[in-house]
Design a protein around this nucleic acid. Structure first.
Lengths: 128, 128
DNA sequence: CCGAATCCCGAATGATACTG
DNA sequence: CAGTATCATTCGGGATTCGG
């Protein structure tokens, strides 16, 4: 038995099941947010376009990420059985709404990341 | 030379140096956001209090997290050279401002995570 | 009591080669 | 074109132990 205090009302990201926690796990993923941005800003894209757009992603990780996002209802996967096959990915409204969240993140980052850099430089200087 | 398209103006999280990317790396860390919330909601806390509050964190990770956050200017570390030593951690204004961002995340999560669950259940049902 | 240092394992990731 | 399969590797992070 622990003596853990009760989290403040309405904001307990202290358990894995917490929605906030799960959201962070999702967008904290390196590739998820990139896919959201890519699709959100350009509309539907084919697999190969995503692959080209998101520099550095391996086929494996891209596929894995897309599958996970499809499972979570963040995007739709449309297969056109032509020859060769064609697969398009498009954000759902849910996925699109994530763009807003990311926008907030971006705003904070652009506004404050300079301070972080300064603090970091200062800290590093003080600690040899 | 790649054929990567130029990111849309004002939003390229496609390189590691991008502020957005770095912010995500920071709060995507499982423990950072928990520390922010804990300190933000309760004010200054001692190491042992944090440890008790954040269930499941190991000493190593807590120390590592706190060090990193101190370096980034998110919190201050105050050592009181009593016997035994006493160390207090407190969010800086910068760290506090992160609470707002987390609040946005929380809002989205509470509003939409149900949809994610539904999508997931549906997907899993369809794919045996 | 705070937290630094070490060891260690499993999961996540990447490179590569192969397939419908 | 759009993946899948496999192998090799890295590495986050937990348990433990030592130091101030």
């Amino acid at each position: 038995m622990t003596t853990t205090l009760e989290p403040a009302p309405g904001f307990n990201a202290f358990e894995a099941s917490c929605p906030s926690r799960r959201l962070l796990d999702t967008i904290g993923d390196k590739w998820v947010s990139l896919v959201v941005v890519a699709l959100g800003l350009r509309g539907p894209l084919r697999y190969s376009q995503l692959s080209a757009q998101i520099a550095g992603v391996s086929q494996k990780m891209l596929t894995q990420t897309l599958r996970g996002m499809e499972r979570d209802g963040l995007l739709t996967r449309t297969v056109t059985p032509s020859v060769p096959v064609r697969v398009d990915y498009e954000l759902t409204p849910l996925g699109l709404s994530l763009l807003d969240v990311l926008q907030h993140l971006k705003d904070w980052a652009e506004e404050h990341m300079g301070e972080v850099d300064a603090a970091r430089a200062s800290y590093d200087a003080a600690n040899v």
